[in-house]
């Protein structure tokens, strides 16, 4: 068994509203004069997993995402090995 480390980047789907991101963007625009044109707030989950090989590890991470980490109704995710 080997240990593999991943980052899961979770974001709202592009057609789902992100009021938090919108508010923060607005404050940056209006109060700090920083011309941010788009801002979406997500989650980044760092995890370490034990598996026989990288392929298996990746499968387990995907399972974790689909089962719990990600609300697949409203969110999408990307997994990166680190």
């Amino acid at each position: 068994m080997q240990k593999y480390r991943f980052v899961v980047d979770v974001q709202y789907k592009s057609n789902v509203r992100d009021p938090r991101g919108e508010m923060i963007k607005r404050v940056l625009n209006d109060e700090y004069d920083i011309p941010v044109t788009s801002l979406r707030l997500g989650k980044s989950i760092h995890l370490e997993i034990e598996a026989e090989n990288e392929g298996d590890a990746m499968k387990l991470v995907s399972k974790a995402c689909e089962k719990l980490l990600v609300n697949t109704v409203t969110e999408t995710y990307e997994v990166r090995r680190i």
Binding site: P19, R20, M23, I24, V27, E31, L41
Partner: peptide
């Protein structure tokens, strides 16, 4: 304040 959308109190403090 500001919904606490970024971090609690963060926007208001500035």
């Amino acid at each position: 304040s500001y919904g606490d959308y970024l971090r609690v109190g963060a926007v208001a403090a500035r």
